[in-house]
């Protein structure tokens, strides 16, 4: 296994992007990380021996198949970024609508959490402790699974360190995706988690099928784009609905 191979660099890229998406919640961090995942995916696809490398970018040889992945990522990130950004312009409707008891309690809880309070360095560190420790466990689980249950490294494939990195990458993306879905507090975070799971399945499919099926590539991209569109719709609808609830005053909170 080479320690300075391009595959290692790609795997480290996946690791860094996944870590950013698990630890941070701000869309300004998670969406560029998602785009970087698709860039990495495009690069990794270009390294697969059965994918024709038909594009030359200086010393770098890439495949048009990998480029499709990058373009898909760009479309997805554009949809999600536009949704997150457009919330500024969504108009607050006239009038207020009372929430029922449970919703009001939830809102009070959310408002208490969102209340700007001075946070010290120690508290800020503590807020990141859980995601960071989860991340460490996730990396350990990924390595264990890739060693114990290698779905790509089979006797049917020629021996190469590339397959180990593919196993690591798809396990990592799938686990990061599931963790994102489980820890999500917003529709957009759920969508990012699901997109990571799809990217993981995409990587596994391409490697195991050992061919480039045009229909399957198109359909995988369509599924991802439809998912992003659907979550954008739900995200805006949730936002509109939440805007119409009366938020409790600071006296009510205390």
């Amino acid at each position: 296994m080479g320690y300075s191979s391009p595959e290692l660099a790609i795997w480290l890229g996946f690791l860094a992007c996944g870590a950013l998406m698990v630890v941070f919640r701000d869309w300004r961090v998670t969406l560029p990380a998602l785009l970087a995942v698709y860039l990495n995916l495009g690069l990794l696809f270009s390294r697969l021996p059965f994918v024709p490398q038909d594009i030359a970018l200086g010393p770098l040889r890439l495949s048009s198949f990998g480029l499709v992945k990058v373009v898909t990522g760009l479309v997805l990130v554009s949809i999600l970024a536009l949704t997150a950004f457009s919330r500024r312009w969504v108009r607050t409707p006239e009038g207020e609508f009372p929430a029922d008891e449970i919703l009001a309690a939830r809102l009070r809880w959310a408002a208490r959490r969102a209340r700007p309070t001075p946070i010290g360095f120690r508290e800020r560190l503590a807020a990141y402790l859980l995601p960071t420790s989860t991340l460490a466990v996730l990396i350990a689980v990924t390595y264990t699974l890739a060693i114990l249950y290698p779905l790509v490294r089979t006797p049917a494939l020629p021996a190469s360190p590339l397959w180990f990195y593919v196993d690591l990458s798809w396990y990592w993306l799938a686990l990061c995706g599931l963790l994102n879905v489980l820890l999500a507090q917003e529709v957009q975070e759920v969508c990012i988690g699901l997109l990571l799971c799809i990217a993981s399945a995409d990587l596994l499919y391409t490697t195991l099928s050992r061919s480039v099926g045009l229909l399957a590539i198109g359909l995988l991209s369509t599924v991802s784009i439809l998912l992003a569109l659907g979550s954008a719709l739900f995200s805006i609808l949730f936002f509109l609905r939440l805007q119409r609830w009366r938020l409790p005053s600071s006296e009510e909170l205390d």
Partner: peptide, 25 residues
Amino acid sequence: PLGLMPVSALMAGLKYLITTTLAGI
């Protein structure tokens, strides 16, 4: 009106979106 849809309706739609994606995977 779209902006007044009950949260339970939106949650049902979101649940379906997640389930169908996981089923496909």
